[in-house]
């Protein structure tokens, strides 16, 4: 670790304990346990279904999982239709987005920002 890195990490307030102990593996374990507990709860308690399809065991869990997967898959497919190069609109306008200075920003060079990070 270079001296510069040490300086940068000391910037700003202290990290809250919950975030400091950010541990991916533990969070994942908690997630799987939550899934199991909720699945059991859904089977044990009466879920007061409004509609016929809600009577399918674990309907909301399965629907949440499937909906998320479908959203991501369709979103990724949508990329082929609506994704264009980043300067799509600017390219033909000549001046639009020509990297003029951002009047509002207060990027602090003393925070060790490399110059190329200042671009928006």
């Amino acid at each position: 670790m270079s001296k510069n890195d040490v300086d940068r990490s000391s910037i700003g307030p202290k990290i809250p304990t919950a975030l400091k102990q950010w541990d991916g593996a533990k969070l994942l374990r908690a997630l799987w346990i939550s899934c199991a507990v909720l699945a059991v709860a859904g089977l044990v308690f009466d879920m007061h279904p409004h509609f016929g399809y809600e009577k399918i065991p674990l309907f909301h869990a399965l629907f949440g999982f499937a909906a998320f997967a479908v959203i991501v898959a369709l979103g990724a497919a949508l990329r082929f239709v609506v994704s264009r190069p980043e300067n799509y609109y600017e390219a033909r306008n000549g001046t639009e987005g020509a990297g003029l200075p951002e009047a509002d920003l207060d990027i602090e060079p003393e925070a060790g920002q490399p110059e190329d990070h200042l671009r928006v």
Partner: peptide, 19 residues
């Protein structure tokens, strides 16, 4: 109970899908 469990099921299993 049904509101809480169904909503949590939807959200937590969707997070599982993300992972």
């Amino acid at each position: 109970m049904s509101h809480i469990v169904t909503q949590l099921q939807l959200l937590v299993f969707a997070i599982a899908a993300f992972v």
